[in-house]
Design a binder for these strands. Sequence first.
DNA 1: TGATTGGTATTGTTGAACAATGGTAAAGTT
DNA 2: AACTTTACCATTGTTCAACAATACCAATCA
Lengths: 215, 215
Amino acid sequence: MTTDPPGLAEETASRLRNDIIGGSLPPGQRLSETRLAADLGVSRNTLREVFRLLTREGLLRHEPNRGVFVAVPSMATIVDIYRVRRLIEVPALAHAWPRHEAVALMRVAVEKARAAREAQDWRSVGSANMEFHAAIVALTDSARLQVFFAQIIAELRLAFGLLDSPERLHEPYIDRNGQILDLLAGGDQARAAALMAGYLDESERVVLAAFARLG
Amino acid sequence: MTTDPPGLAEETASRLRNDIIGGSLPPGQRLSETRLAADLGVSRNTLREVFRLLTREGLLRHEPNRGVFVAVPSMATIVDIYRVRRLIEVPALAHAWPRHEAVALMRVAVEKARAAREAQDWRSVGSANMEFHAAIVALTDSARLQVFFAQIIAELRLAFGLLDSPERLHEPYIDRNGQILDLLAGGDQARAAALMAGYLDESERVVLAAFARLG
DNA sequence: TGATTGGTATTGTTGAACAATGGTAAAGTT
DNA sequence: AACTTTACCATTGTTCAACAATACCAATCA
């Protein structure tokens, strides 16, 4: 089962997604169909298909007859995202099988994050942290949940892009991820889940505070 | 916050979605771009945007260079869907505020289901039951979760379309929905959640058994 | 100053075109 | 007869050009 040929639309969507999450296209930015199509080297029709994709993922906002804009996360967005994360991630850990193959993915993510910390590469630390949480959702063995969660993660990273001081945002959680991993691998799912719940509460507080400081 | 003018693509997507869920387009059916575009009275380009929409929702399957087909639910699909439902609906009830406005929606859904039972209209009973579960998810106050769950529901209804004997599929749950509603409204979230968990387990068993009988 | 009007750029949608791909049936081969 | 090859044909993937409808903006007028 080799991966299908991506198709120009999907490929372009990936490219644009990275531009958005990477911050090269700031939230609120208007995306002109003709100009962006030219820049990306695709036709307007194809770009419109891409727009539908990313709009549904929550990365773009579409205003009829006015155009598409890079979504601007609000505090309501943050609150909603963390609500979803709590609802999904905590039970995922609580009911996890400690020898599930996704545990290996969690371990890889933790190690990536620690290596990136050595290099003071906070953006990569953020990526690795997100990978860790995606691995937690993989514990559920639900394809649909994993796809949904990937979207949530993309939206959250978009929000993080608005904030500065990425160190304060990511560094404190690297070792906590390690603790959660150790607890789960050791068979103590309950405590792993509890730790995650506290983790999410604190992270939400920090992010909301940073948002409030932006006005 | 009034609803945006739907746009031809969204409108067409709705129409096609109903055709799929309503069974007029059977699972596995191939959808020719040119012919369907003519039937629906839209251009091929617009129809392709619709296809992207519904593919992402899980109602269509896209095979590169071969076309799009109405998705054929498998037992794996059913298992995954019920996994998601358990993970979302049970905690939604467990943590619900008994005077949440969505409780009224739950009540409306139960009454609709009972009225449809009077009329022996089992398709409508199914719709009302799904409305009930959507209302439960609304208890979470999470916009993202509600959108996600709507997709899950659509996929499940597609699967139900494959099965006959809609009475056995829906009738037993009408009054249980009523009990869950009463428990929640009475402030006993824990027992409401427990009842829902059993409900989902049994429903999954019934659906899987019906599927197995199809081969 | 504030409202009206008109021009202009952009989106929404269509239709046509062509290359690339996949399926099919006819032709040829063993 | 059964199998492979080939040639054809319908369909998808993608682009381009066109036009109506809409929204933005600036100039005009009360």
